[in-house]
Nucleic acid binder design. Sequence first.
DNA 1: TTGTATGCGTTATCAC
DNA 2: GTGATAACGCATACAA
Lengths: 359, 359
Amino acid sequence: MPVTRRDVAKLAGTSPAVVSYVLNGGPRGVAPETRERVLAAIEELGYRPNRIAASLRRNRTMTIGLVVPDNTNPYFAELAHAVEDAAFDAGYTLLLGNAGSDVKRETSYVRTFLDSRVDGLVLIPSGEVVASAGELAESGTPWVVLDRLVDHVDGVAGQLVSDNRHGGRLATEHLLWHGRTRIGCITGPGHVANFNERVLGWRDALGGNGRDATAAALRETEISRFAARDAARDLLQATPGIDGVFAVTDEQALGVLRALMELGLRCPDDVALVSFDGIDASSLTTPGLSTVGQSIRELATSGVSVLLDAIERDDDAPAERAADPARPLVFPVHLTPRGSCGCPDVFESATRRDTGGRR
Amino acid sequence: MPVTRRDVAKLAGTSPAVVSYVLNGGPRGVAPETRERVLAAIEELGYRPNRIAASLRRNRTMTIGLVVPDNTNPYFAELAHAVEDAAFDAGYTLLLGNAGSDVKRETSYVRTFLDSRVDGLVLIPSGEVVASAGELAESGTPWVVLDRLVDHVDGVAGQLVSDNRHGGRLATEHLLWHGRTRIGCITGPGHVANFNERVLGWRDALGGNGRDATAAALRETEISRFAARDAARDLLQATPGIDGVFAVTDEQALGVLRALMELGLRCPDDVALVSFDGIDASSLTTPGLSTVGQSIRELATSGVSVLLDAIERDDDAPAERAADPARPLVFPVHLTPRGSCGCPDVFESATRRDTGGRR
DNA sequence: TTGTATGCGTTATCAC
DNA sequence: GTGATAACGCATACAA
């Protein structure tokens, strides 16, 4: 037998409506003396408002959905955590779904979240297109695409990505600067634009320096350190002269590191390595991972911010639209040199980290 | 203007109730001919049922809440992923909250989830007690405690943990077996029972072998590879003779690995290392991490299972109770020797992994 | 200032 | 087998 507004009202000797007014601070005032009685009654009964009922009435759930390929991947984990933080700060609750590179499951989650009437949706696409774009548009629920650029996203409120191509170039140029001449590349699935962009950056850098980036020096694998380890072994053995590797994700770089060890090659002495993402873990491998860091927290925070703006706007004037939401917001990346490329390996202590850390 | 059951009913020339019956497959039958018209109308209008309204009516949301200390920690990430999988399979949606070792925030999330009328709650406690146990009990919402044992949890439907003490002993005995004689320990915050248990296991093993485990060989840090790196440096420098280290979490072991490198010590040659958890990442460090593996997936799956049972039971007979839910379910652990303890480092290839992997 | 009444979209209990 | 109708808990417009 749950305690409801009726019970509170009865105990306070007033009406349920008044209880609402004191709880919501409006839209009407309530006599100080009545308010006291109401608060006392709430306290006494341990009354807790039912968000479900409020959601139904207000047509607003104060929840947002987050669909992520795999929260087990450190990069997505950091992204998800930052999204959750931003949502929490704004008073929203997060519904989480792992799509697991399975477009079917991604669609299923989007549908479930829409049925749950989330106020907005943050989507990190698993495939090259968002299969649910149609349903999303039809539902009128605002949504943003995070981290990965996709086509055919008409109704989207915003797309937020890092400057992948530039990052790929930065990484490769840095390897060249270290005097490396034969630079291989470990990349992710070809249907993900991010990775193709990073590979383009790799080609940009090599081309600009008079070297050609042949397919021979490229391996495509899943975004998994295990798959990357196998690919790196294959690459290193098939192309003996390689003295540098650009891995398009930190996760894969961990596998490359392992492959080097297994083959008896030293990093960076024999093979220098630069990767991409800038996850926390990259600073504490052996050696430290030189990486092109993304502004993970900013990406997530801005994504939620864009989403909440769209939700607000939707509430006021359903017709209005943000300025060209189809044009992606591109976030800058920055090279963080550490040991794996041949730069001095900076020892970042935990205490220094904690003071200078996030927020 | 959302399309509702009324619209479907009108188009199909029937009543909203009938639409419910065809959608829910009960509790009453419906004439095949009517059912066809209803389905056609649903299709035509692109009707999607409103879960919020259904939840309010049914007093059942088909959601469960998960409160986790930090989904960025690989161990919790794997746990969370497994919980999500189990929930998904059972048709439940997951609400996620990061408490971040902040009991205040944990309480806040529990409250929010209760207000959202989750059907059940999975809690990985951040503190030594569950501050919200009272509210939980009062609400009557079933909940389980995962991974960490805590006191004063009267209303809990179940507690699921690994055999921490035994694991600590396993790890340490293995180091002894390798001929290591001075074995230090890096542990986590003293208010977490898990870590204390693992430390007890460490003492057990040392005591049983006639060696004494002095406080000098112990360092307590946060569960962070960064903090652990600092602590390990301190430990290794303050106690020169150390030839083995037991780290109570894989996460911390990563920091120990780094500390060893920085001090010019080789692992396992100079210092052998065994840790605890068995996260995916442990198999691909350099060297591979010897670790006492938990059955992460089973822990999560059983946790959800216990929770769902309690939900079912609650639905049928609110009074009934499971058999002594206060007694924790203890899961076995298993030693996975790899390179860091001195065992041969098995190279687990991605392909072999994928076939033998989860599910 | 306060109480009353209606509706949000569903589900389930009614008579028919 | 079917259609009307009440209720879930809350928010607010409206009458008092």
